[in-house]
Amino acid sequence: MVKKYRNFKEVGDAVVIYSDNYINDIEGEKLEDLCASYMERGFTSIVIDFSETDLVNSIGVSILIGIIEKVRDCKARIAFSGLKRVNYDIFSIVGLTKHIEIFDTEEDAVNGRVPQEMVTS
């Protein structure tokens, strides 16, 4: 069953969250709150889609790392999709690309299998 809202879409036990144009502290905190509430509700797969995001700054990176840590602490899965080149480069610079599943589309991210090393890391 798929439920689509303005900023997120629920697909079974997965949720796709659409991040805003610019992830600074305020937007980052909204994302953090949204992810936390889905984990509390028992969703086991979080996909953040960055298709509409033009820029992630260092505060945004810090918040995204915090989200990744919390999702993993809950033994849930997190994946990114729709990254623009500039954002992919930023994630590369800070080393995130080596530690997170990144897909071209949200569909791939929702359906993508979690590599074994990710679950246990």
Binding site: N57, S58, V61, S62, I65, L96
Partner: peptide, 30 residues
Amino acid sequence: ELGEEITSPKDFTRVVKSSLYMVMGSFSAT
């Protein structure tokens, strides 16, 4: 951005928090 943040008229607690997040984001510290 850090320069802009520390000279902004925002609440000091907010400025310090943002500054810390910037440092952590720059080095991907958790």
